[in-house]
């Protein structure tokens, strides 16, 4: 049984529990619920993590901005043609330190999601992000990005406006930024669309976030011409936070409560804020040249090869 199925069944049990007065029946239901809970959360598969990473109740970039920073001033537009609502960005204060915050924006309702294009940016979004990052560099502000996207939007206009070029440009420019960059994967880290905001000095992930070359659905459809084999694909893709941490690509993990983060979660903001303050304390001591050199090496060693 998948985590999603278990959660559906638990909700059903909760409804029955509320309706029934019969103590024997209540005991049965409670026993089944506790069995389901330990089964579901005690043995989480990679695809369960994908499910948790995509849950609409999960905190989004706006929640992190509101609860970690103060004085957020949102900035709009790429100064070329458009403002992409799928990417939010601006200036904020982290305990008095001015920083630039950028993130993929997903909605919690269908209406919001249509507005934010389900967190799938167009080239204008990446160009807005780059504009804000170059501005951060000018004013010596550290940059913090929140990654939560299924991927860059695959559409007619996004291709016409140079989706590939926009992502490529961000990768190249982010590598050369002379201010600290910290990228935090809070939900889905999908493909080049995620990478275009996450070439960073430190990459952090939440326990139930995922980061992969492609969505499991896309992966299954490319490799086996069958998107319905996404579950199977997820197990092979090594896309969980633990996989990436063990692989040495991610520097730090943040634990989550059983069943993942939701609206009631509180401690994550405090933990993340403290981690940011500590890490920026270290990174802001480095010269721009040292930061660029370190970042270069961080990516340079991924995919190491030899010829002997």
């Amino acid at each position: 049984m998948s985590l999603q199925q278990a959660e559906d069944r638990i909700r059903q049990l909760d409804r029955e529990l509320a309706d029934t007065e019969d103590n024997d029946r209540r005991r049965e239901l409670l026993q089944e619920k506790s069995r389901l809970l330990s089964e579901a959360y005690g043995n989480i598969s990679a695809y369960d993590r994908v499910y948790l990473a995509r849950k609409p109740a999960r905190p989004g970039v706006r929640d992190y901005i509101n609860r970690i920073f103060t004085d957020f001033f949102e900035q709009h537009g790429d100064r070329l043609m458009h403002d992409d609502p799928a990417i939010i960005g601006g200036i904020a204060s982290l305990e008095g330190l001015p920083v630039t915050v950028i993130g993929h924006r997903k909605g919690k309702t269908l209406e919001e999601n249509l507005k934010f294009n389900f967190g799938m940016p167009n080239p204008e979004g990446y160009r807005k992000a780059l504009r804000l990052m170059k501005q951060a560099e000018k004013f010596r502000r550290p940059i913090i990005t929140f990654i939560d996207t299924p991927g860059a939007y695959p559409g007619l206009e996004s291709e016409m406006h140079g989706q590939g070029e926009a992502i490529a440009r961000n990768l190249m420019e982010m590598g050369s930024l002379t201010v600290p960059v910290i990228a935090i994967v809070i939900g889905e880290g999908g493909s080049g669309g995620a990478l275009a905001l996450s070439v960073a000095d430190r990459i952090w992930m939440l326990e139930n976030s995922v980061y992969s070359i492609l969505s499991p659905e896309g992966f299954a459809s490319i490799l086996w011409k069958d998107a319905s084999r996404a579950r199977e694909a997820a197990e092979l893709m090594k896309l969980t936070a633990y996989d990436l941490y063990n692989r040495g690509i991610v520097d730090r993990l943040f634990g989550e409560p059983a069943g993942g983060l939701d609206e009631s979660s509180r401690s994550i903001y405090e933990r993340m804020k403290n981690a940011l303050i500590t890490e920026l304390g270290v990174l802001t001591k480095l010269s721009g040249r040292a930061l660029v050199e370190q970042r270069y090496k961080k990516y340079r060693r991924i995919g190491d090869c030899t010829s002997d």
């Binding site: 490529a168 982010m174 991924i302």
Partner: peptide
């Protein structure tokens, strides 16, 4: 696809 996240990171590596 077969090399997963490592392949994705080659985009950043070559760009840098």
């Amino acid at each position: 696809m077969q090399e997963g996240i490592v392949s994705l990171m080659q985009m950043a590596k070559t760009g840098n």
